[in-house]
């Protein structure tokens, strides 16, 4: 596993937050995923060695929590809320708009490698439905028009890279 030095030092720091090392499981998974973009196959063994566990203990956790992914995704992660309050105000249409904009399907990397569009469950922002998270940013009241606008923005940012 090839982790950045700052990730490694964050890992060592966060382990000190807990009386038992195992508690650092989710923090470590987050840090590795933030560094590499996903959790490569050797993650379980690496963390197991770090926290004095068995690899299965890590794999069980990775597969339980939907935010952890074992495969790379597009450069941007578009997470559309699927749950009731958002759906009542057009969340499914918003999601379809993103899929169409990037010629992709749920859970897949778009052909240009730019995004992965996913449905997620309630993001605790139901009062401004429909909501969408793009990477770490929450976008509120994302109707189809706003979805197009956000897609344009993603593409514009991609061009600048």
């Amino acid at each position: 596993m090839n982790l950045k030095p700052e990730t490694l030092s964050k890992i060592d720091e966060v382990i000190t937050h807990y009386p038992t090392k195992r508690s650092a499981m989710l923090p470590l998974l987050h840090l590795i995923q933030e560094d590499i973009g996903y959790l490569p196959e050797d993650t379980s063994e690496w963390i197991a060695a770090k926290l004095d566990l068995q690899p299965i203990n890590v794999l069980e956790v990775i597969t339980f929590y939907p935010m952890f992914r074992q495969k790379p995704i597009g450069r941007r992660h578009v997470k559309v809320c699927r749950t009731l309050s958002c759906a009542l105000l057009g969340g499914y249409k918003t999601c379809a708009a993103f899929e169409k904009e990037f010629h992709t399907h749920l859970g897949e990397v778009s052909p240009d490698g730019e995004v992965t569009v996913d449905f997620v469950e309630c993001l605790a922002s139901c009062g401004t439905a429909p909501v969408v998270m793009i990477d770490d940013e929450l976008h509120e009241k994302v109707d189809v028009a706003k979805a197009k606008q956000l897609s344009d923005q993603i593409r514009a940012e991609a061009k600048q890279r």
Partner: peptide, 10 residues
């Protein structure tokens, strides 16, 4: 106090 992040499980 430490902050501990979940990972998407209700």
């Amino acid at each position: 106090i430490f902050v501990h992040r979940g990972a998407g499980a209700y």
